[in-house]
Structure formats: C-alpha cells, structure tokens
C-alpha cells in the first residue's frame, strides 16, 4: 500500500495534470469532502472529479503543488499552493487572463489506502480579489 502522504499528494496534484485515474484509485466510494468554498459536501469520486473540473475549466493551465505534509494516525494534513491563469469562467466571473496564486490546507482521513473524508479551507477571498471580483483592500 502506498504511503498515506504520497496518496494524498497524488490525489491533490495529479487531477490538475489531467490524471483523473488517481481519483478512482484513491477516493473511497463513501468519500465526503467538506470544502469551505462549497455549500454542500463533495461526495464520492464523481463529486471530487466534478469539483476539480469546475476549476480546471476556469484555469486550464492550473496546477496545485503540495508544500508540506504532516501525518498522524489515520490523518494527513497538507499545505498546498494553487496557481493558474483564468481563461475560462469561474464563479460567474468572465475570463480575465489574470494569473492567481492561492494557498490552502486540507486534512484527509484514510481507510485501507483510500481517502474517506476530507476538510479543506483555502484562500477563496484572495482568489476573488486577485481576479478583481472584489476590490483590493488598501495597504498600510
């Protein structure tokens, strides 16, 4: 069985490279993901894929890089950075051509080599400001 940190790393990075096989390989059918940016939980491999595709449609050159991971018990905490150019619509925002960089944290719980539960928070506000959908706050 692959190392838990490696499973999570691949699951976070690979779908953005078009490798959706890792979702079927590493996401349990009972998977429930809670993303602070999503009003409803993400359920199962199909839900994970749909969620990724929602963003890759807006950021076709997008990529996520895992920066750091900590594992304890059946959980893995991952700090990641996403970067991409918005050439498609995202959250109702027409293509801007702007490149954005956002950071996030994901805690994943694994059972039998598959991710069964996930909690994610990421810099949604930062993305919206970088895209110009929300005014940039004045700096001191």
């Amino acid at each position: 069985m692959a190392d838990a940190k490696l499973i999570v790393k691949r699951l976070i990075e690979e779908p953005w490279k078009g490798n959706f096989d890792v979702i079927d390989e590493y996401v349990a059918s009972s998977f429930v993901g809670r993303d602070a940016a999503e009003p409803e939980p993400i359920r199962g491999p199909a839900g994970v894929r749909a969620n990724v595709e929602k963003y890759t449609a807006g950021f076709p050159d997008g990529a996520i890089t895992v920066d750091d991971q900590i594992a304890e018990g059946d959980k893995v905490a991952t700090r990641w950075t996403g970067r991409g150019t918005q050439t498609g619509e995202v959250a109702g925002i027409a293509p801007t051509g702007k490149e954005v960089t956002v950071t996030g944290l994901t805690i994943s719980r694994l059972e039998d080599g598959k991710v069964v539960e996930e909690w994610t928070t990421w810099d949604t506000l930062g993305m919206l400001i970088q895209l110009g959908a929300i005014p940039e706050p004045a700096r001191a």
Binding site: T85, T101, E136, P137
Partner: peptide, 21 residues
C-alpha cells in the same frame, strides 16, 4: 489604512502574471 484580507499575491496590471508582494 488596514491591510487586512490583502492577498499575498496580486496579478500584474500590465500582463496578469501572479506576483508576490
């Protein structure tokens, strides 16, 4: 002036590249 909620990165106004402060 407050810098609360200001992102660490912002796109360049001329080319759109994501730039750290």
């Amino acid at each position: 002036m407050s810098s609360a909620f200001a992102p660490h990165h912002m796109p360049c106004a001329e080319c759109g590249a994501s730039l750290a402060m």
